[in-house]
Amino acid sequence: MYFDIREPKNRPDATTVLLSAGLGGAAGYWAPQLAALRARYRVVAYDQGGTGRNSNAPAQDHSITAMADEAASVLDASGTDACHFIGHALGGLVGLELALARPERVRSLTIVNSWAAAHAHTRRCFEMRLALLKHEGPAAYARAQPIFLFPADWLARNAGRAAREEAHAITAFQGVDTLHRRIAALLAFDATARLANLGVPTLVVAARDDVLVPSLMSEQLAAAIPGSRLHVFPWGAHAVNITEPEAFNTLLLEFLDSHADRQSRPAAHH
């Protein structure tokens, strides 16, 4: 297990925000949010099993349930009773599962460019990425990754940054088996029938130009979660928290601050 804690200055009683990345899995994905969040909250970010600095390779039958259990373990290890959970894509699925299975651990939930069940278009994208990995290898997979994450004009303006991130993606590649198991887990996940039971304040964030996850999926997700709030950015693509960090952070802090003092819902007893 690997996690990082950023304590806010002069706020000893600050509530905790837990950050969960997407398929890449690494805590570093959230770098554009750390300073803004740390000003008001205790921030915990972690590398998911088999990614980054976490050497715990996922089991062959890996699942989103197992990833939610891992997130709960991070809360335990970091001394956190309940958190404001923020998840991107796969990380959003983890947040959904955690909030549904252990509502007492979640004060609020923010889901970014995610889904209740993978759309046929999203499946096509993952199938093509896996085909590229199989036939061309990790370097080609890493080179194609920005196409699914960023707007074309942003990539054109940030060619140097994209090249550096590509090099890092190759160096820190999580491994073929790990990637296959993580993709299989996210494609198998389907929370559709349980969303009406979600009682956690929820913000659903999407980008209209997301190539990987159609914003329609976020709209349907928000419609199915009681009392949720939906915000669709007109531009920014799948990694909108990176391409539009100031607007994203403003939205996020406004939502978190509105639920800063909320206590998590007690677990149901059966």
Rank of each mutant, 00 (worst) to 15 (best):
D153Q: 09
W154C: 03
W154I: 08
W154Y: 15
L155E: 05
L155W: 03
L155A: 01
A156N: 07
A156Q: 12
N158C: 10
N158S: 11
N158E: 12
N158K: 06
A159Y: 02
A159V: 01
A159F: 05
A159M: 07
G160L: 11
G160W: 02
G160Q: 12
R161M: 03
A162F: 00
A162H: 05
A163N: 10
A163V: 08
R164Y: 10
R164N: 10
E165Q: 15
E166C: 13
E166G: 06
E166Q: 13
E166V: 02
E166T: 15
A167S: 12
H168W: 11
H168P: 04
H168S: 13
A169H: 13
A169D: 15
I170K: 15
I170S: 08
T171W: 05
T171C: 11
T171N: 14
T171Y: 01
A172M: 15
A172V: 09
A172H: 08
F173W: 14
Q174M: 15
G175P: 11
G175W: 11
G175N: 10
V176L: 10
V176N: 10
D177W: 04
D177A: 15
T178L: 05
T178M: 06
T178S: 12
L179P: 10
H180Q: 14
H180V: 09
H180A: 10
H180R: 14
R181T: 02
R181G: 03
R181Q: 13
R182G: 04
R182H: 05
L187N: 06
L187D: 06
L187V: 05
A188P: 10
A188Q: 14
F189A: 14
F189V: 04
D190K: 06
D190R: 12
A191I: 02
A191T: 08
T192N: 08
A193I: 09
R194P: 00
R194E: 11
L195I: 05
A196H: 15
A196R: 15
N197Y: 01
N197V: 00
L198F: 01
L198W: 03
V200M: 02
V200A: 00
V200P: 01
V200C: 07
V200L: 00
P201T: 03
T202E: 06
T202I: 03
L203N: 07
L203S: 08
V204G: 08
V204I: 13
V205F: 02
V205K: 02
A206T: 10
A207S: 15
A207M: 06
R208G: 00
R208N: 03
R208D: 07
D209A: 00
D209H: 01
D209I: 02
D210W: 12
D210R: 06
V211W: 04
V211C: 08
L212D: 01
L212T: 08
P214Y: 02
S215K: 04
S215Y: 12
L216K: 08
L216I: 02
L216W: 06
E219T: 09
E219V: 05
E219D: 13
E219R: 12
Q220G: 10
Q220F: 04
L221W: 06
L221E: 07
L221T: 04
A222Q: 11
A222C: 08
A223R: 11
A223S: 09
A223I: 08
A223L: 07
A224M: 06
A224L: 09
A224C: 07
A224I: 07
I225N: 01
P226V: 07
P226W: 00
P226C: 09
G227D: 04
G227E: 00
G227N: 03
S228I: 08
S228C: 07
S228T: 09
S228K: 12
S228V: 04
